[in-house]
């Protein structure tokens, strides 16, 4: 029994180490995935905004707002893009995808700014908004809003997959640790039984098994026998 107590510490160390690895890898992974997805989303959205800005110059100059609307309607079909709006150089909203109307928060914002901003629109959700100027802003600006919830879901999915993998490793590791502990403990248990018997009546059972081993357990058994023999000779001499 004492032998198993000894290996409890090994098991505890194993799980503690695994926990540290899982936590640190998960933390790093969440940060990395989040940052990279975030950057990718923003980068893609900037590309889309720039694409719309480049494509819309002629439409704006020709007052062809129907085609402009048709253009942004196609882009808003992309999964992560939730809204697009185009403002003129004077800040007038020339085309947008909002239903039932343009949110007050967006009406109140500076339409000439193309900085990346985070928005929380009541009833709609949380968004990252990027912008791109049309003809350096003299013809207007394009703004593209990406759904942060969808981004969060993608991060969760990516991290969830990692956790699933860690879970499988943990189960396999636990089974292996049990097997390893019981495999390692068996010679020690034999040695302990040998020593107990030796200390009792001086006749150990399983003597040949333990004494015949060529490892440290065998050496200890032989040492115990030698000590026991020496002790017996001392007793006889007194």
């Amino acid at each position: 029994m004492r032998v198993h107590k000894l290996f409890r510490k090994t098991r505890f160390s194993f799980f503690a180490l695994f926990g540290v690895i899982v936590l640190s890898v998960s933390f790093l992974s969440i940060r990395t995935v989040s940052r990279e997805l975030d950057e990718e989303y923003v980068s893609n959205s900037r590309s889309i905004a720039k694409n719309i800005a480049d494509s819309s110059v002629d439409m704006l100059l020709n007052r062809n707002l129907a085609t402009l609307q048709s253009l942004i309607d196609q882009f808003v079909e992309i999964e992560s893009i939730r809204y697009i709006y185009i403002t003129s150089d004077t800040g007038e909203f020339l085309a947008h995808t909002f239903v039932p109307g343009i949110p007050e928060e967006i009406l109140a914002s500076d339409p000439s700014s193309t900085e990346t901003v985070e928005r929380s629109l009541p009833g709609l959700g949380d968004f990252i908004e990027v912008g791109s100027p049309i003809l350096s802003g003299v013809a207007g600006n394009v703004h593209v809003g990406m759904d942060k919830e969808l981004l969060g879901l993608k991060i969760q999915r990516a991290v969830g997959q990692q956790m699933y993998l860690f879970g499988i490793i943990l189960v396999i590791g636990t089974l292996l640790s049990f097997w390893f502990v019981s495999f390692s403990a068996r010679p020690l248990a034999d040695l302990m039984a040998f020593a107990v018997n030796l200390a009792g009546d001086g006749k150990a059972t399983g003597e040949e098994d333990v004494l015949g081993r060529d490892d440290e357990v065998g050496e200890l058994a032989r040492l115990f026998t030698h000590v026991a023999d020496g002790s017996a000779r001392g007793d006889e001499g007194t």
Binding site: L65, A66, H96
Partner: peptide
Amino acid sequence: QNDAYGRSGWAGVRE
């Protein structure tokens, strides 16, 4: 209607 048709009419009203 929030599409090309609606925008076309919206633009007409605006003008």
